[in-house]
């Protein structure tokens, strides 16, 4: 039986890898790098054989001509990222090894539990997985199973569904016919605006939302999270705040247990999330 050896939740802010290379960095950058280093060490200490990487596509592989709610990649190797992300964010092109057997087993296990993933045999991943990997495993040497969500192009699945899908992923992992050590790496954000009137503000977009959002995870309070996260309230927190929903999926993967680490870091940017579960039983 497979064992979950770590769950990590982290930012996928695509501007940060380039920012961290610059000679002049804003004062908050050091605190962000320190947290990233903590998460990188946690992942290394857990020694996973395979990483389930959960993030949301940003209208790259997904588009409104054929929009899945939840998709799993089934490939030996994945390309990251797309032309526009290399241009806009200066992200590197990269190759990440896959584990299609684990992809298949999770998909089958999810089907058995009432979750019908879309799948892809030709998936390119964008910053929602590339950036977390650059942060916590820049060697990109652990095979991944990418799971992508639609939390950017409405209509979208409900917050409760993100949690339920996370629970199904967890149950599928627990039943994997393998002794592999499984790590789960989830990316998302707290309150955030992109392409709207409040974009690029170097401060928390909605401190009330952020404090609540970290608190629900800290306390395993999924009910308050789904009650609070109406489309209207999330929009008020920032027009891309729906990216928080990936973390409700993470709560499902953690079986709603309390995390070892939970923080919405205020470092002079929109809040930067860091979560971890260092062991799972």
């Amino acid at each position: 039986m497979a064992q979950i050896v770590t769950i990590i939740g982290i930012t996928h802010n695509p501007f940060m890898p380039r920012l961290f290379q610059q000679p002049q960095q804003p004062p908050g950058a050091a605190k962000v790098k320190e947290r990233i280093a903590i998460m990188r060490q946690k992942l290394a200490a857990a020694k996973p054989d395979v990483l389930i990487t959960i993030g949301n596509d940003h209208l790259h592989q997904f588009f409104m001509d054929n929009m899945p709610a939840f998709m799993i990649g089934k490939m030996d190797q994945y390309d990251g990222t797309f032309y526009d992300e290399i241009r806009e964010f200066g992200l590197p092109s990269c190759k990440l090894p896959g584990d299609p057997d684990v992809s298949d087993a999770i998909m089958d296990g999810a089907f058995d539990r009432g979750v019908d993933f879309a799948y892809s045999n030709e998936l390119t991943i964008d910053h929602s997985i590339v950036v977390p990997m650059l942060f916590v495993r820049p060697e990109m040497d652990i095979p991944i199973v990418p799971i992508l969500t639609n939390c950017i192009a409405p209509p979208m699945p409900r917050p409760k569904r993100f949690y339920e899908v996370g629970k199904a992923i967890r149950a599928a992992i627990d039943s994997l016919p393998t002794h592999k050590r499984v790590g789960v790496l989830v990316s998302g954000h707290l309150s955030l605006e992109v392409g709207g009137p409040k974009q690029f503000e170097r401060k928390l977009q909605d401190p009330e939302f952020d404090a609540n959002a970290v608190g629900w995870i800290e306390n395993g309070d999924i009910q308050s999270a789904v009650d609070f996260c109406t489309p209207e309230r999330m929009l008020r927190a920032g027009n891309m705040t729906m990216g928080y929903l990936n973390f409700l999926m993470m709560m499902g993967v953690a079986n709603n247990s309390k995390p070892s680490y939970a923080e919405g870091l205020d470092a002079g940017f929109p809040a930067i999330p860091f979560f971890s579960w260092d062991s799972q039983h």
């Binding site: 940003h58 526009d84 806009e88 950017i152 992109v194 392409g195 974009q199």
Partner: peptide
């Protein structure tokens, strides 16, 4: 238009004509 993609597109197609700060 979808704001996420619209901003990325706007920066790409205007960056040669307008300084970024002014465009933002």
């Amino acid at each position: 238009a979808h704001p996420f993609t619209l901003w990325s597109f706007t920066e790409a197609v205007w960056s040669h004509e307008k300084p970024r700060e002014e465009l933002v």
